[in-house]
Amino acid sequence: MKRSVLALTALAAPLALVSPVRAIAPPTQYEPYLRATAYITDTGTTLTWHRLPVLAGDVPKPLNLEDAKNACERDSPPGARLPTMKELLTLVDEDPVPQYQGKQTVYPTIDIQAFPETPVDRPYWTSTPAKDTGALTVSFATGKTAPYVGSVELYVRCVRNVKVSL
């Protein structure tokens, strides 16, 4: 009897330690959304984000800087644009939870329930110009920012100043 309790405790203790305490953004951070919701509004920043990155078919598509800007601006309905670096940094989850991507465990620094389709093997473009050439980017693998030249193909998540009424 005692042994089985001990065994149970030994099993449960590490589970309790590593179970994510606070996996995602607080419940009021994003306006309520359903599984099929396409746009999510941040109640803090009031920005409305495209829930999916720019896709080719149903796969996130890396684009060069020029194509990234065009992909957002030509989106329908009008009003979408590439976010600035400071805007994209407002999506960063400083306490990331693990997710399987490309056969490995990564820690995407974003709310993976609000933005489940966020591959982190490349950074994401922002509209903020880098000092020399190209633009600044945000890595959701690390939460860091870095300048990239415009010809590199990176992921794209568009943003809107106003909500989209479906």
Partner: peptide
Amino acid sequence: LPAVWPDKKMPDSTQGAS
């Protein structure tokens, strides 16, 4: 600090920012 989420708009002078 614990993970902190934005509670206000993000001031930004970059062109295009809201």
